[in-house]
Computed example of a mutant assay.
Amino acid sequence: MSTPHVLLGLLVTGAKHGYELKRAHDERLPRARPLAFGQVYATLGRLQRDGLVATAGQEREGGPDRTTYTLTDAGRAALDGWLAEVEPPMPYVASTLFAKVAVALLVADVDRARDWLVAQRRAHIQRLRELTAAKSAPSATLDDVVALDFAITHLDADLRWLHTTLERVADWHREVHS
């Protein structure tokens, strides 16, 4: 995720201070890793240094001064350029799940590898049920539904891959250990 670009996007709707940006991030990207306040302010500092945001003032609401930031024309151009770039599919398989399965098939006998895959599939199915229930909850916002659709689709792909791999365990094991 590009935190600077996400913060620029959140500033499109108007000036905000760091706390508002963190809250907006966590609301608009509800299933993403929450941003730390330090990360928000450090990123805002770099964006300001690069001329992509400017200070719009300071306010005090019963606490310390809060600097409000606004998007500059250069920031809007940088955001538009980032959004226009097609995100390339990942060139490599970078998944802990894939690495664990590959190693399990190398070091375990067929039955142990199959047991691990079945346990992993059960965990995925349970998580899929949880996410599906969350998606149909009355409190689910459109932000939640979009994030949940993304997570559910990825879990479904993992489940299909686990199913296919389970069908191939004996063949893979025989090939590796022959």
Rank of each mutant, 00 (worst) to 15 (best):
W172Q: 12
T141C: 13
H163V: 12
D144P: 11
D158I: 00
D156P: 00
H163G: 13
D158V: 00
E130M: 04
I125M: 08
A133E: 14
L131T: 05
L159R: 03
H154T: 02
T153N: 11
A137W: 06
A134R: 14
A157R: 00
L166D: 10
A133V: 10
L155T: 03
H163Y: 09
H173W: 07
A151Q: 15
A137Y: 04
P138A: 09
W161I: 01
H163E: 08
Q126V: 01
P138K: 06
T132A: 14
L131C: 02
L155Y: 02
A147L: 01
T164P: 07
L155N: 07
L131I: 01
D143H: 13
A170V: 11
P138R: 09
D156H: 07
H173M: 03
A157E: 14
D171K: 13
L131P: 00
A140T: 09
L162F: 02
R174D: 12
R168W: 09
L155V: 02
A137S: 11
R168D: 10
D158T: 01
T141S: 15
I125R: 07
R174T: 15
L131G: 03
E167D: 15
H173F: 05
A137G: 11
D144T: 07
A151Y: 09
W172A: 15
L162E: 07
A157D: 15
T164K: 08
A134N: 08
K135S: 11
D143W: 06
H154Y: 05
I125S: 07
I152H: 00
I125Y: 03
V145L: 05
L142W: 14
R174H: 14
D149H: 00
V146T: 12
T153G: 13
A133D: 14
D149F: 00
I152A: 00
L148G: 02
S136V: 13
L128Y: 11
D156I: 07
H154A: 05
I152T: 02
A157Q: 08
R174C: 12
R160G: 11
S136W: 09
H173A: 08
L166S: 05
S139G: 14
L166H: 03
W172S: 15
A147M: 01
A137K: 09
R127C: 00
H154W: 03
W161V: 02
R168E: 12
T165V: 09
R174Y: 06
A133R: 09
A157M: 08
V145N: 08
T153Y: 03
T164I: 05
D171N: 13
S136Y: 11
K135N: 07
R129H: 03
A133H: 06
S139D: 15
A140D: 10
E167C: 10
F150R: 11
T141A: 11
A157G: 13
A170F: 08
A140K: 04
T153M: 12
A147N: 04
H154G: 04
L148F: 01
Q126H: 04
H163D: 09
A140P: 10
V169R: 00
A137E: 14
T153W: 03
T165I: 07
E130S: 09
W172M: 13
A137I: 05
A140C: 05
W161K: 01
R127H: 02
D171F: 10
K135G: 03
